[in-house]
Simulated assay, not measured.
Amino acid sequence: MQKIYQKTAAIAFSAVVGIGTITAPTQAATLTWGLSFFDTAGNPVGTGEFSYDDEALTFVQTLPISAPVGFEVRNALTNFSATVLGKSWSLGDRPGVTWWQPTDSKNLGQQVISRYGIFIADTWFFGDVGSGIRQFSLQGNQQNSAGWGGSWVQSVVGLTPSFGSGSWSASPSSAAVPEPSTVLGLTLVGVGVWFRKKTKKP
């Protein structure tokens, strides 16, 4: 009878160890970076932020045809907001996909969609690409002590015009930490070890 209990305990222990090695699904690794904007004299003129999901793959179409033609990017932006010289900008100001590649030589990328077609640019552009009434662009590929950066240009015509240029920098501000191995699995492993020891006692 004792051997039956021991075999049962061994089977239960093996099953518990199997459960314990299963890790919980990781959370979406949403990374957020803060933006700082400066004029040509180095004075601060605006702030902003952007975020992306480091685990998600986003397809970027490169030709305006029905068949999927293009490539996938991992760091497509999920949010962008900036206010420079009193003017606000967001992802809604630019149709297409915008992505961030901090480990690549071309650290900015964007799928630009206009009446002229689709093309890939190494800038982030927001506003009206056609008439030029409201435009804001960021050129990247510069590394500095604050993280990553580059240059920006803003052009807004109308009743309250706004023109300016300068530099920008980006630095990480937050990241969602993936979940570790499930606590329940580790607890079950402990129970299995205890149960196995108990069945071995005379």
Rank of each mutant, 00 (worst) to 15 (best):
V177C: 09
A175P: 01
Y116E: 14
W152G: 09
S162W: 08
I133W: 08
L138P: 06
V97R: 04
T123L: 07
D122R: 14
V112W: 02
D93Y: 09
P161E: 00
N141E: 13
A146E: 15
F125V: 01
F163L: 05
I113C: 01
D93P: 05
G164Y: 07
I133P: 00
L108C: 01
A176C: 00
F119D: 12
V156M: 00
W124A: 06
D104I: 03
F163N: 11
P172C: 06
Q135Y: 11
T160D: 08
D122F: 05
P172E: 02
S90V: 07
P95Q: 12
W99H: 09
I113N: 10
F136M: 05
A146C: 00
F163K: 08
Y116G: 13
G166D: 05
G117V: 08
S105H: 11
N144P: 13
R94A: 11
G150Q: 08
A146G: 02
L91S: 08
W168T: 08
S114Q: 11
Q143Y: 13
S174F: 07
R94E: 08
S181P: 07
A146P: 09
N141T: 12
I133E: 13
I120Q: 10
N107Y: 01
S165R: 13
S174G: 14
W99K: 02
L159K: 10
V177H: 05
D93L: 06
F119N: 14
F125H: 00
V129M: 10
W124H: 03
T160C: 06
D122V: 06
T98E: 07
P180A: 07
N141Y: 04
F126Y: 12
E179S: 13
T103P: 09
V156P: 03
S114N: 15
V156C: 02
W124S: 01
